[in-house]
Amino acid sequence: MTVPDLVPDAVSDVPRPKEPQFTKWLRIIIVVGLIIPLLWSATGLEISPSRIWEAPGQIWTLLGGMFPPDWTGTPKTIELILESLYVAWIGTIIGATLSFPLAFLAATNVAPRSVTLPVRSFFSAIRAFPELVLAIMFIPAFGLGPFAGTLAIGLHSIGTLGKLSSEVIEGVDDGPIEAIKASGGTYFQQMRFGVVPQALPTIVAYWLYRFEINIRASAVLGVIGAGGVGAEIVGRLRFRGDWPKAGAVLILTIITVLLIDTASSIIRRRIITGHASSSRPAKWMAALLGANDEPSTEIAEA
């Protein structure tokens, strides 16, 4: 097919604009800005072609060594996984309860700047320490075991949850606060009836999300002796003969975390949207709780 002449006479005299050069240069700058640090990093990490070449084989050897998994240690593994869950749960509870009041002090729309600034800095400061580093510093004070790990996770959670919650509080609609103020409500009443109803669903969803993250963090803490399943993984991987057991520990951990992730995300969606999700796992969960069929009008009849 020949290229048709698309230009009608009437509009052909409109001048074509010049292509802006800015985006072109921006693209080049971004690419260079990525490649240079990447190369610099590669030189420092003892990365050689032969290592990259050998890596897949080595990983395959490890995976092959872990399968078939050896399930003989399962009861003990489950106990350790549960310990990790307990640590994560208490850590989340600590983080949630302490961060909740602090979040109000860090939100610029309900607290003066002289208060928000120090509280926010406090949040940033405790967030800067990874849980593991905190746990390392707590162990000499509280001894080995889940206790130090719980405190480390709790403290770190205060920082992360405090920041997220204060952002939620800053995002609420000012109207209700003003209305309560106008009808003579105290500061506490303004918060209780103007802010909390708007912010709480999202904040609770963040708590649950933090729990999901804390499970991963607490699983890791075992590595330094702060309780949980981490120690088991490290221990089992040390000797080749134990690799099948390590495989079993890994699989059990993955399954547990996967189940909790799924349940938690269903609940989070429920909290935020206000109605149940229609996904298959959500339906199973609803069926399990027997909450799938009742028309809501029945409450009024009862």
């Binding site: 409109v14 074509r16 292509e19």
Partner: peptide, 17 residues
């Protein structure tokens, strides 16, 4: 060139970028 011609035909070539 074809893209610019198409834009000229519908009369909005000045909005190209």
């Amino acid at each position: 060139e074809l893209a610019l011609q198409a834009l000229e035909r519908v009369g909005i070539v000045e909005k190209t970028y």
